[in-house]
Design a protein around this nucleic acid. Structure first.
Lengths: 136, 136
DNA sequence: TAAGTAATGCAACCGGGTTGCAAACCTGTT
DNA sequence: AACAGGTTTGCAACCCGGTTGCATTACTTA
């Protein structure tokens, strides 16, 4: 049963500890992106620093990506299968102003922008705020 | 000399105190968006809370707009003349990963996005990160 | 089993943001 | 000029998300 997560972690070269399996499990079943404080609420008995480092490890190894939606806390969501966190993998995120959940709109890529001369692009973040389908 | 700022404040129904004139002056001559901590560095003798409330007042009265570029601090920049902070006035912002300055790309409007069914739009933030013209 | 490395738990700290409250200030009125 | 009302300011304290140091525990491998 945990084999699936085990394998997933190993694929990304992350040692599959119990904590990591659990966090990956939660992130998998979650439809929306999770912040560290939210993760703390789910794992009430776990240590904040451990959760923090777990997320950082996942992010470093490109199992998850981070979103700063301006809600005050950085959120994290699973990367899709083929994602290698390059510019082409960037998608729009949606923050619901009612339930405060953040959605990955994986099917909506971030539009290309023509920057002024002399400006080079490394990364783009696009966050749409509004009311989500569940809250209306 | 201060008449210009005075008038500008009064137009937005903000009582023109000394502090507010000074902050507006700094924001005017600044080419990039400023955060509260950055403002504190400029006005070393001023109180953090006062600066904070000054920015909040300016924002409420649509003299400035705020940008969360994911750098950890919210930044503020003067609105352009005709701006009334509606969706049409939204523009792309640029965060330089070298000098950490945030630019308003006023001439680049935020592209329109087609959201999934059931999702409604209230606001959009688009921040491009890269190297600015001055740092290359 | 022993040594070495990695992960965890605990505590403390940092920095941006925010608020309560009292003092100072401004404005209009008597 | 003195006063009353409302606004702004300064100071202090606090909140919260994020981050780090360090000792302990768990894992791996010789």
């Amino acid at each position: 049963m945990n084999d699936k997560f085990d394998k997933q972690l190993q694929t990304k070269h992350i040692k599959p500890t119990a904590m990591r399996q659990l966090v990956l499990q939660v992130l998998t079943k979650q439809k929306t992106a999770l912040s560290l404080p939210e993760l703390e609420e789910i794992f009430v008995r776990a240590d904040k620093a451990t959760l923090y480092r777990t997320l950082k490890t996942f992010e470093k190894n490109k199992l998850i990506h981070s979103i700063d939606d301006g809600s005050g806390a950085v959120r994290y969501a699973l990367c899709s299968e083929e994602c290698d966190c390059s510019i082409e993998d960037l998608h729009v995120h949606f923050l619901c102003s009612k339930c405060n959940k953040t959605y990955c709109l994986n099917e909506i890529p971030v539009p290309t922008i023509k920057l002024p001369v002399g400006f080079s692009l490394e990364n783009v973040s696009m966050v749409v705020e509004g009311i989500c389908a569940n809250c209306r």
